[in-house]
């Protein structure tokens, strides 16, 4: 099988492209980091790409609202190509700031998109902003490890076979908001992919720090109707190895005493493997 090509956007304050590229390479893909301006200049790069990634970071310093200015840059210069790209059998992953960009591009939850026949841009249903990621309830940047429960019914291809994740968040604006009707449609349309839970697996029910930002319905991640586009606030690329975990020194001792093998990898890698395996 040929390695699927991953295109990771960079520039303007995006800053998680290197470790995200590494996670994809480690999972068997071919990563290519491309500056937003180079992609605008050479749009055909999207033709060979199978996985498009909006990595985390602080595009445009979060000025005017996180992900907004970068979404504008793409809307102003790349939107047609992007819409054509998602019509193909391709994947899009937005992490943290990338999730904020996807929401502001209207690529997730994209509730109207699957109701239209072709789902192209001409009918105006894609590219409609339906939700938001607003300031954390604490109005404070939160870098901490969280527990996530994967939604069983989600069509997302990124989460196949995963039940729980223990990975970090790091953001100031990750508080998922949608108007009441939209939220209902998101829930009914199985657009939620991950929710924040307590370490024992029960719902966080908005309780800090389990739900680190105040997200409605503890939503940490959503996808579009096809399951091929997913945005998530937590950072799986920072949790691909065992020694990246916040509790690894404890687990190491535990496994030693239980005569168990000490693992090399950790939860986050599964997201990337799923993306790569989609093309096998």
């Amino acid at each position: 099988m040929a390695k699927p090509e991953v295109l990771l956007l960079a520039g303007y304050g995006i800053n998680c492209e290197d470790e995200t590229a590494y996670a994809f390479e480690y999972s068997g893909a071919k990563s290519r980091i491309v500056h937003v301006n180079d992609l605008i200049e050479n749009r055909s790069m999207l033709n060979t790409c199978r996985i498009l990634v909006f990595p985390g970071g602080f595009s445009y310093g979060d000025d005017t609202g996180s992900g907004l200015a970068l979404a504008n840059r793409i809307k102003n210069n790349l939107m047609d190509e992007l819409l054509a790209y998602i019509e193909r059998d391709t994947l899009v992953l937005g992490i943290c700031n990338g999730f904020q960009v996807l929401v502001n591009l209207g690529l997730v939850p994209a509730l109207k998109r699957d109701q239209s026949t072709a789902g192209n841009s001409a009918d105006g249903t894609t590219g409609r902003v339906e939700a938001a990621l607003v300031h954390n309830n604490t109005f404070r940047y939160q870098c901490r490890w969280v527990d996530l429960m994967i939604e069983k019914n989600s069509p997302s291809v990124f989460i196949r076979g995963i039940r729980r994740l223990h990975i970090p968040v790091a953001h100031g604006e990750g508080n998922f908001y949608a108007p009441e009707d939209t939220l209902k449609a998101i829930e009914n349309g199985s657009r939620v992919t991950m929710r924040y839970v307590k370490p024992e697996g029960t719902p966080a029910q908005g309780l800090f720090p389990f739900n680190p930002n105040g997200s409605m319905n503890d939503i940490a991640s959503i996808c579009d109707g096809t399951g091929r586009i997913m945005g998530m606030m937590p950072h799986p690329e920072r949790a691909i190895f065992f020694t990246q975990r916040d509790d690894w020194t404890f687990l190491k001792e535990k496994y030693i005493r239980e005569n168990k093998e000490i693992p090399e990898e950790s939860d986050g890698i599964m997201i990337f493997r799923n993306a790569v395996n989609y093309f096998s």
Binding site: N15, R140, Q142, C143, R238
Partner: peptide
């Protein structure tokens, strides 16, 4: 400590 991102770059 928690408002300074210490996980970026992995």
């Amino acid at each position: 400590s928690y408002q300074y991102d210490h996980e970026v770059q992995g």
